[in-house]
């Protein structure tokens, strides 16, 4: 799947390009997002198109987080629907990920001097 992204300073702002991230496409997402997860990358992931995520989708997000954490980067999620946030909360990932309401808020959360 094609993942569209912008560079804002040293931040990368990308969007999940599907409405549903499940076992059928989570692997594909993981593969296609990987090029964005370079060293020191600060990634803002926009989930506003996403309506459904299952455990595989959650697993893909966790994979991103672990890769960035390992290389000194970081990730912030934004634009979550109520339903998607509900799934995150079920497994308490809302305490693991930084979750912001909007892209601007997420960019801002990385620090004003970088924007």
């Amino acid at each position: 799947m094609e993942i569209v992204f912008d560079k804002v300073g040293d931040l990368t702002v990308a969007a999940v390009p599907v409405e549903e991230l499940d076992a059928s496409n989570a692997g594909e997402f993981k593969r296609d997002v990987a090029p964005l997860l370079e060293a020191n990358t600060k990634l803002v992931l926009d989930l506003s198109r996403l309506h459904f995520v299952d455990s595989s989708g959650l697993g893909a997000f966790i994979s991103c987080l672990r890769k960035l954490n390992a290389s000194g980067g970081d990730i912030k999620l934004c634009g979550m629907s109520k339903q998607v946030r509900g799934v995150f909360e079920l497994v308490r990932l809302h305490r693991v990920f930084d979750i912001c309401a909007t892209i601007e808020e997420a960019v801002h959360a990385f620090g004003p001097k970088d924007s």
């Binding site: 455990s55 959650l58 893909a60 966790i62 497994v91 990932l93 693991v96």
Partner: peptide, 9 residues
């Protein structure tokens, strides 16, 4: 549930 586990959820 600490973000260290990608599968088994």
């Amino acid at each position: 549930l600490d973000g260290s586990q990608e599968s088994g959820l």
